[in-house]
Design a protein around this nucleic acid. Structure first.
Lengths: 213, 213, 213, 213
DNA sequence: AGATAAACGAGACGGTACGTCACGTCTTAGG
DNA sequence: CCTAAGACGTGACGTACCGTCTCGTTTATCT
């Protein structure tokens, strides 16, 4: 969300000639980070319905103006905060030659790790609710989901279909739903944590559902 | 939620002998219904985060006190409103001798029908978010879910396990997650409607995941 | 207030002939007293603005219906409660042949005694405010004031005017104001208690203001 | 009340050196005035018990938050509103060499003028009740009373005592009570207006009570 | 002895207001 | 031009009372 509007310091917009584009200070990285961290904690402590921008501003020692300048809505901030926390972790790298089960598991692993702890579950539940409540926030979430899950999964399944381990009329929507739906069920509908040894089962059920024949 | 506290008029608590129960006016059925309907509409129009008890009270021509008297929280009211709407519809009846696929489909059909329309999807999305946000509301939802889905499904799967069409170590949690998770994914994460021809696919993936061998 | 509407038990309305007047139970004396006491305490604890009929009903174990049946408004109840407490005390009796100073002092003494204690001051302040706020309650108070103060004082002053110790054009309003105004000033404007040795001073200033010449 | 907390625009706090005091917007003068006027009207229309901050906010087009930010309580606002109205009028100026009767009369004249009209009487009755009901509001009123009445009167009486027209053991409390008590009696206890030609009589009774001998 | 009617306790009801909190916008002064 | 601070109008929160009402019980009088 935020990164799309105005470049963070460092990754300044390319200016073709010597013409100056903007004067004055750029977006403050310190402030941005403080807000994201405060928002994440706000989510994990107060959930989505009681998520308060006022409180985030106060704990981040940022002004509300600053928050509203860079995020469209509280919901966008909430989703951004959860995604930013996810992006902080080192990515799970799996060789393209690895077992298909491991490669699919790598797509859900980061989220599963994130919601393992109580705080993480609370925060992610809140972010999900924000994405469900608000159109813009929903788009932010779905853009991430498309990028990090749907497209990679599509590649994997296309490959497997060629190898014959996946039926020819495989459906990417069915696959993603079977992979993530159970997580949402645990997180949202059951309001519980997501158990540790879980990813294998999810991968298994996807592969069974997509198995040829 | 509401029905548990004080009986609605008509379904008065059985009194064995002449023992007096309560004096004074009973809970107003008209008011209860008006509130439930108004809450349902509020959910479908404003979603969960902007769900306003003030507005519900105003449109139902009820006082907020009356609402808070009978529902623990706005979230409980939201969930109750969605469940009440569901309970209004004639239940899907399937003979115990029917095909297992039809019997399982009957468990998800009411919800699928409810979220088919735009309003229904909005309202149920809101109710789900409410159940996710609030502990009490979550319990109301899970009690319903247990009653109407989990227990019936357990019966069916136990039967099938005896027949050998379902593996012996079947897991009721896996089954419910595979049945409903995809619906939550569509409704919450994708913020979209749930497609018409869907229930067969859900049933199929469950049966595949639970198939013996 | 209350006594005017329906007779208390015992002082039943005279019925000329054998014609039936009313059936059923009469006004409950126990309930009436409990309400008056509870109202007095309510006044002394919560003042007038936070005087709550609900609370009075609860502490008197009376129903609100019963209260509203016998008193026009909360203000009337408040004034009635204070006056009833005053009427409980044995009246100050002074012989008509006593010194004029003592006879006038006897008119203010009961009130001065009542507001000597902290509770009494609170309660009477509340009752005064109620009488000031509400027309009906004001009438109740003024009726009492007229009965117990103004008329007796008028008698005394008329006598004294004949004797020549009071100017011929004496003004009953001036007299009552000088007698009670200072009490209101202490009670209302200064929010304080009324000092012990006070009545002599009040009487003195009245007599000085009304002295002939 | 209000003026003490944060300076109104214009009367900014003196800053000795270049030290910064506060950033951000200052208290809105327009809003303050609108609230005071609305509160005065609210008092005169609804009295004290039915004084509604909601209504004041609505008619002043101000938010309740703004009201509670600058006034401790509804009672404080009520007293402030009446005092502000009084302060608007040009003060009654009397030369220190004028007749003592006129100088004392000047102390009660503004209030007498204020309560001459029906609206004024209603509003001031309300303000008095507010000051009687609430400790903080009482202090605001008494501070004003001390400033504008008690201290000036003390000066006058001290002078007169030296001249011998007032007894040596004069009592400032007795004096103020005799001056204002009758006004409260009319306003509060009798719920009536205060008659036009009144101030002379009040002054007279004070001087008589304090006369030497 | 019923039957009748009123008073009672309890408390639900539609309202209004409370005092607080958060929203998103706007204003000020510093860097 | 960004930032922190924070005042502003708007409106919702959950609670407390208002005065009216509806219950089922109790009590007193009349047939």
């Amino acid at each position: 969300m935020s990164e799309d509007d105005i470049p963070l310091p460092g990754e300044d917009a390319a200016l073709d000639d010597g013409v100056r584009r903007r004067v004055g200070p750029r977006r403050s990285e310190a402030s941005t980070n403080a807000v994201l961290i405060a928002a994440y904690n706000e989510l994990s402590e107060h959930g989505w319905r009681d998520f308060s921008v006022d409180r985030v501003a106060k704990t981040a020692k940022a002004s509300k103006q600053t928050i509203y300048r860079w995020w469209k809505s509280a919901a966008c901030l909430a989703v951004d905060a959860a995604l930013a926390r996810l992006a902080d972790k080192p990515p799970v790298v799996v060789a393209p030659t690895a077992d298909v089960r491991d490669r699919i598991a790598a797509l859900i692993e980061p989220m599963l790790v994130a919601v393992r702890t109580g705080d993480g579950a609370h925060a992610w539940r809140g972010a999900l609710l924000a994405a469900a409540d608000d159109g813009d926030a929903g788009e932010v979430f779905r853009a991430w989901f498309n990028d990090k899950v749907k497209i990679p999964l599509r590649h994997i399944l296309a490959e497997q279909a060629l190898k014959g381990t996946v039926r020819r009329d495989w459906d990417i929507d069915l696959a993603t739903e079977l992979l993530f739906g159970p997580i949402w069920h645990r997180l949202i509908a059951m309001r519980g944590p997501v158990p540790e040894v879980y990813s294998r089962r999810l991968v298994e059920s996807v592969l069974k559902a997509l198995a040829p024949g």
